[in-house]
Design a protein around this nucleic acid. Structure first.
Length: 943
RNA sequence: GGGCGCUUAACUCAGCGGUAGAGUGCCAUCCUCACACGGUGGAAGUCGUAGGUUCGAAUCCUACAGCGCCCACCA
């Protein structure tokens, strides 16, 4: 027989093979269904990783969760599409290639735009696939045939289409505004790309002489060098200190330029001296104030944050050098009134951590709060509305509030970037000043006939990623894919990109998919019948937690605490790593990744592996002795799986093929299996991955392996004809439950389950993969409370005996007789399971007695029975007394509490009947237990 | 300056109105013919502090302390 499995599970030996198999066999392809297909659909967009990226733990968590959900839905019969791709990641990729050029002592400017872009493409072709290969290693069940790159031709066309349409609708404009300028990246960046860091700086007080009087007005600033571009000093209109200066002018020191004192609420009388310098070209607030007062805007810096000729004799200095010089000069002139330490929130570039310069420049913006020309609601308004109405649900729910708050205060989106790598803005400039925005390059200027040059800027990367939910499905064409797969079912991502990406997808989706309606059959099948709005990009948003290191620190390259998932995988296996992440992924809490957990789940994988080994060994034995053949199981289970999978509708596969409950453990494991399957279903439905994982874990290990397997062993080696029949049933049940449990576990541990599942079918399974087999749904009517109660009594008895043995330090191999006192019902139960008791508790001979054994030596009591082991060795009386007293104390405490509650009228009146009943029952039980414990204590004393 | 989250066994975390659970670690014991990545048994928590609501609170409310995150144009 080919069932020779190595003793210890070695994930490395099988995982790569299956990863390849899944891709090669195209198992997870979601082909466009033919018209009229009523199959329910589950669509999930992969947040496209940067082409420059390497997989990190955050990805792995994210991918694990998505893969679990996708595999789960696929197994349940959904047409599951998980759509992969990579993002061109403007700045990141450009920086990567620039660095490469620098090593060759080259420079992008010297190379020229065209050559540089070609060079980036080359880089992308070479290295851009790395992260996709890593995804294969994780077992991500994406549809590889649909893999896109955000700069593919069709996606680029869609980007131009969107830009032009927005422009035509009046939602894109070009304007001169203060933007965040990164002097290192030499581009404008959006507000979201700026990280604020509290930095130790200084607050300087500078005296500006008031013209025509010997007076000074003192202003406070953290950035003295910007004074060179000051065009006013503002005071609060109601500030009495400066009333006499209204309408006066000051002479700007160093520049010797006369500037007005203006009245504006920009100045806060509470802060500093109450007077503030106004630099419209280098501060967002000042810019607004400047507009209010028609002030000139003097830009004193160039692209590299060096001062320009507007700064007079300071021209050419870096902004840092300029600060020193300005301060020195002011000091020399006696105009520096004071300096004090001050923490300033410094804005830094998210990419390169360079201090951002607020700078006046001309950029393209998307007007997000403006209605379209033809009166349609603004992008933001729609994006707020669909979330408020629950057309898009956000989970955990506190993120919904955060989202709505942010959307309510959203500002126009600066979408132009001064980069070379990205989607170039489809706008053309003419020397005559005309700007044309068009889908294709116009031949000449329609106004003057002159030559045109394309706008040099490219679009913010998030502009194109915001469109992915529909552009990846063929938009702007009206494709069948769009009809079937849009709206997506879920968007699962990290909090960090809720605004970067999620908000933009909602805005664009609602705007551009207006008029998108699924045909009725598809809509019906989608399972989202209660949701009316089909323009939204997805129905649900699930925000997953952050993965931190074991010390709860955010992982970052600079801290050097980044855990490479590939290393973890190599050490413990992909399944164990996935399981760790799933088991720790409680919604809303960050994960401190801890390898000891992974170690534990590697052991779990090994446990299952060995359970399989056990089965195969016994099956082989049974086949040799002709008792049973695996073929029986294969035919039966295979037929059921094929039929469950064949249909186009969801057909819950609830049963275990041919299960024949003969014994208590059979009834019990069947009941548990269904209960567990239902729990898993409920947990996954509400994104409680940790609960789902833990449920499967404890079922497999704590119930199937620890109890069912051990009990069923008794029946596998038959004696006599009746034994043969029992063995046949036992094999059928054992294999049946095991196979079904593998399917239950499969989304969490796809590799291990695939390997064993194929082995169960001797490499010729009924379907190409366990991932295509039906998921156990769990049948509530199959839950058998009586079996579970009976099993609990049996387990209780066995554990009591084991406990006694341990305490008496009985030789592990010695088998002892036991005596049991119990009522008739329990007695029958125990008699029927005598063999199990003998085997699992190391017992030989069970005798039942009429009298209570509470005060017998070596006895244990429960509410349902007393049990004593027959063993001549004297017990350690002191230890026994201590144990009993401790237990008694606990019981009495609990009883006192219960009685207090039962004596409380308020409690009886207000508590739910179920709770009262529960406590009554418990109190009665406690009384019995206490009585038994007291008896036992007295017995100890008398002896 | 706003907003949010966390504080439960030695460690990492679940639980979120009916007197506490898991994994790892620890102790004891056993290489019993699936598994020492194992079996069996065990020890271990006044659920951050102080109040309050409730018949009842780890669970709800308030304050405080510590830790962390996000957002923010007060020089």
């Amino acid at each position: 027989m080919p069932h020779e499995l190595p003793k210890a599970y070695d994930p490395g030996a099988i995982e790569a093979r299956w990863a390849e198999y899944w891709v090669a066999e195209k198992l997870f392809a979601a082909p466009t269904p033919a018209a009229g297909s009523p199959r329910p659909v589950y669509t999930l967009q992969l947040p496209p990783p940067n082409v420059t990226g390497r997989l990190h733990m955050g990805h792995m968590l994210n991918h694990t969760q998505m893969d679990i959900l996708v595999r789960w839905h696929r197994m349940r019969g959904f047409l599951a599409l998980w759509l992969p791709g990579t993002d061109h990641a403007g700045i990141a990729t450009q920086m990567m290639v620039e660095r490469q050029l620098a090593e060759e002592k080259q420079d992008r400017r010297a190379l020229g735009r065209e050559k540089f872009v070609e060079r980036v493409w080359e880089w992308k072709r070479h290295y851009g696939g790395a992260i996709l290969e890593q995804m294969k290693r994780l077992g991500d069940s994406v549809d590889w045939a649909r893999t896109y790159f955000t700069m593919d031709d069709n996606l680029s066309r869609a980007v131009r289409e969107v830009f032009v349409r927005l422009y035509e609708e009046g939602l894109i404009y070009r304007g001169k505004y203060i933007v965040n300028w990164c002097p290192r990246c030499m581009t404008a960046i959006s507000d979201l790309e700026v990280v604020h860091e509290e930095t130790q700086g200084k607050l300087y007080q500078i005296k500006y002489p008031v013209s025509g009087s010997g007076e000074f007005i003192t202003v406070a600033t953290t950035r003295p060098e910007t004074m060179l571009g000051d065009t006013a000093v503002a005071v609060h209109p109601a500030d009495p200190r400066y009333r006499h200066l209204h309408g006066k002018k000051v002479l700007l020191p160093l520049m010797e330029r006369e500037i007005p004192i203006i009245l504006d609420e920009l100045a806060n009388p509470e802060f500093g001296t109450g007077a503030v310098k106004v630099t419209p070209a280098h501060d967002a607030n000042d810019f607004q104030a400047g507009l209010r007062h028609n002030l000139p805007q003097i830009d004193i810096m160039d692209d590299t944050a060096h001062l320009n000729q507007n700064a007079g004799r300071y021209a050419g200095l870096s902004r840092h050098a300029a600060r020193e010089r300005v301060l020195a000069d002011l000091e020399a002139q006696g105009l520096l009134a004071g300096t004090k330490d001050y923490t300033v929130p410094l804005g830094k570039c998210d990419r390169c951590k360079t201090v951002v310069e607020p700078r006046l420049s001309t950029q393209w913006f998307v007007a997000v709060t403006k209605k379209t020309k033809d009166g349609r609601p603004s992008l933001a308004a729609r994006a707020i509305e669909v979330v408020e109405r629950g057309e898009v649900t956000i989970f955990p729910e506190n993120y919904k509030t955060i989202y709505l708050n942010w959307m309510a205060n959203i500002r126009d989106w600066c979408v132009s970037r001064q980069l070379w790598w990205g989607h170039r803005i489809p706008a053309w400039h003419c020397a005559c000043g005309k700007i044309i925005v068009a889908r294709e390059e116009p031949p000449k200027c329609p106004q003057c006939g002159g030559a045109l040059t394309q706008d040099p800027d490219v679009l913010d990367t998030w502009f194109s990623s915001g469109l992915l939910p529909f552009t990846t499905l063929g938009w702007p064409e009206k494709t069948r894919d769009l009809e079937v797969f849009y709206p997506g079912s879920l968007l699962l991502t990290a909090y960090e990109i809720l605004f970067f990406w999620v908000a933009r997808m909602i805005m664009f989706g609602c705007h551009f998919m207006d008029g998108h309606r699924q045909d009725a059959a598809i809509k019906q099948a989608s399972g989202w019948g209660e949701r009316k709005d089909d323009t939204v990009p997805f129905r649900q948003v699930y925000i997953h937690a952050l993965v931190r290191d074991a010390e709860r620190q955010k992982m970052s390259k600079t801290k050097g605490n980044v855990l490479d998932p590939i290393h973890v995988i190599e050490k413990y296996g992909t399944d164990a790593t996935r399981f760790t992440l799933a088991a720790m992924a409680a919604p809303g809490t960050d994960i401190a990744f801890n390898e000891s957990r992974t170690e534990g789940y590697r052991a779990f994988a090994n446990k299952i592996w060995n359970a399989a080994r056990f089965l195969f060994m016994n099956v082989d034995r049974a086949e040799q002795s002709g008792v049973w053949s695996l073929k029986e199981f294969q035919d039966r289970a295979g037929a059921e799986l094929r039929s469950a999978q064949a249909g186009s509708e969801i057909r819950p596969h609830t049963g275990i093929a041919g299960f024949e409950a003969r014994t208590l453990e059979d009834r019990w494991i069947l009941s548990r299996f269904h209960a567990v399957a239902r729990e898993v279903h409920e947990a996954l439905e509400s994104f409680r991955f940790h609960e789902a994982a833990n449920t499967v874990y404890s079922f497999f290990w704590g119930e199937f392996c620890d109890w069912y397997l051990e009990m069923v062993k008794l029946r596998l080696a038959p004696e006599g004809g009746a034994g043969r029949e029992a063995a046949r049933a036992a094999f059928g049940n054992l294999l049946g439950v095991f196979e079904a449990a593998l399917r239950l576990l499969s989304p969490f541990m796809p590799f291990l389950t695939e390997e064993i599942w194929h082995a169960l079918y001797d490499g010729k399974p009924p379907l190409k993969s366990i991932a295509l087999a039906a998921y156990p749904e769990g049948d509530a009517t199959a839950i058998d409370p009586a079996a579970e109660t009976e099993m609990a009594v049996l387990q209780d008895l066995i554990v009591s005996v084991r406990n006694l043995r341990a305490e008496l330090k009985v030789e592990p191999k010695a088998r002892l007789p036991i005596r049991v006192h119990a009522d008739a019902g329990v007695r029958t139960l125990l008699e029927q399971n005598r063999e199990a008791i003998e085997k699992l508790a190391g017992v030989e001979g069970v005798s039942f007695v009429e009298e209570s054994l509470a005060k017998a030596a070596h006895a244990r009591s429960s509410a349902r029975f007393d049990v004593a082991v027959v063993y001549e060795k004297k017990i350690d009386k002191a230890a026994e007394r201590e144990r009993l007293e401790k237990e008694l104390g606990k019981l009495e405490g609990e009883l006192a509490n219960a009685q207090r509650q039962l004596g409380n009228q308020q409690f009886l009146a207000k508590a739910p009947a179920k709770v009262v009943e529960g406590i009554r029952k418990r109190a009665a039980e406690l009384e019995v237990l206490i009585e038994k414990a007291r008896t036992a204590l007295r017995g100890l004393g008398a002896d």
